[in-house]
Nucleic acid binder design. Structure first.
Length: 281
DNA sequence: CACCATGTTCCTTG
DNA sequence: CCAAGGAACATGGT
């Protein structure tokens, strides 16, 4: 959002090319093209993991395009003459530049349907995320706290990597039933979430939107370091993808487990909150 | 070949 | 009605 806002503001849509119709779900190519062509980008904002592109049509009517990157999506501007990425899904012609939505796995999307944002929980950085709110939102749930952190209706914007990272920093077991977190644990978790996201945003700001490295996995999320900076990863993610490595806090061993179908990484030694596993799960 | 991967939504089961 | 689990979406890396 921070990168796109300054480069999109004021730009007029000259054309729209859709290479992947399904990336517009829900919606259709004609509808999307009709709405966008000759419209002007006014601003870009964000809610949870959604990007909100605010535009104004030729007649002056404001409307919003919702964007979501899924797991592998990227959105960036490039020169109109630059070759398109293999998995370019939607390309918006802005005159001299193309606004490219590239998405290898096509889990991301662009749509005129904005209703998903209404269902989101509070922004993690906002005053709305309080210990009291958390308590209420978690309610009597017996689900593990890690699984609850991925529920976008509880808190918006936390993904699988940062859920593990936040719980590690808060010293809370990912297995702990959501209803069993104490007030101090909730406070610690809120602080940890904010710290993790703050660092992630600061780091992300140093990386070009179309950055791809040559190392294993995705460079932005996993390593993200500019070429030459090889140890940023070491400092950034403390437990994620570090199974069998030594815990940086207690010299225990980082473990991997699967919760709700997603990998969770944690230290079995310093994230013990024994009242964990509910018998059913 | 097998398994894993930053996310969301739909369907089924209990 | 709700909670919870699994599959589906599609492609690429190890």
């Amino acid at each position: 959002m921070r990168s796109l806002r300054p480069v999109l503001a004021g730009k007029v849509v000259k054309g729209v090319r859709v290479f992947r119709e399904k990336s517009l779900r829900p919606g259709s190519v004609p509808e999307f093209r009709r709405k966008l062509i000759r419209s002007r980008f006014i601003d870009v904002s964000r809610r949870g993991k959604y990007l909100l592109f605010q535009l104004r049509s030729r007649g002056g009517g404001p409307f919003t395009v919702l964007g979501h990157l899924g797991m592998t999506g990227r959105m960036y501007l490039q020169k109109a003459t630059a070759p398109l990425a293999r998995h370019a899904a939607v390309v918006i012609d802005l005159g001299g530049d193309n606004f490219v939505f590239e998405d290898t796995r096509y889990f991301g999307r662009m749509t005129l349907e904005t209703s998903p944002v209404a269902k989101l929980g509070p922004e993690p950085m906002s005053d709305e995320l309080t210990q009291e709110y958390f308590r209420t939102a978690l309610g009597r749930s017996s689900q593990p706290i890690k699984v609850k952190l991925l529920d976008q209706t509880v808190v918006a914007g936390i993904g699988n990597i940062y859920a593990s990272e936040a719980l590690f920093r808060a010293g809370i077991s990912p297995k702990l039933s959501a209803r069993r977190l104490t007030a101090p644990q909730l406070e610690a978790l809120i602080s940890a979430i904010r710290q993790v996201l703050e660092e992630a945003i600061a780091f992300g700001s140093t990386v070009p939107l179309n950055f791809t490295g040559s190392g294993k996995r995705d460079q932005l999320f996993y390593y993200g370091a500019k070429p030459g900076i090889t140890n940023f990863y070491e400092e950034r993610l403390l437990v994620y993808d570090r199974a069998n490595q030594t815990c940086p806090r207690c010299k225990g061993v980082i473990k991997r487990m699967v919760q709700a179908g997603r990998s969770t990484y944690f230290c079995g030694r310093c994230q013990k909150s024994k009242i964990g596993k509910s018998r059913s799960g």
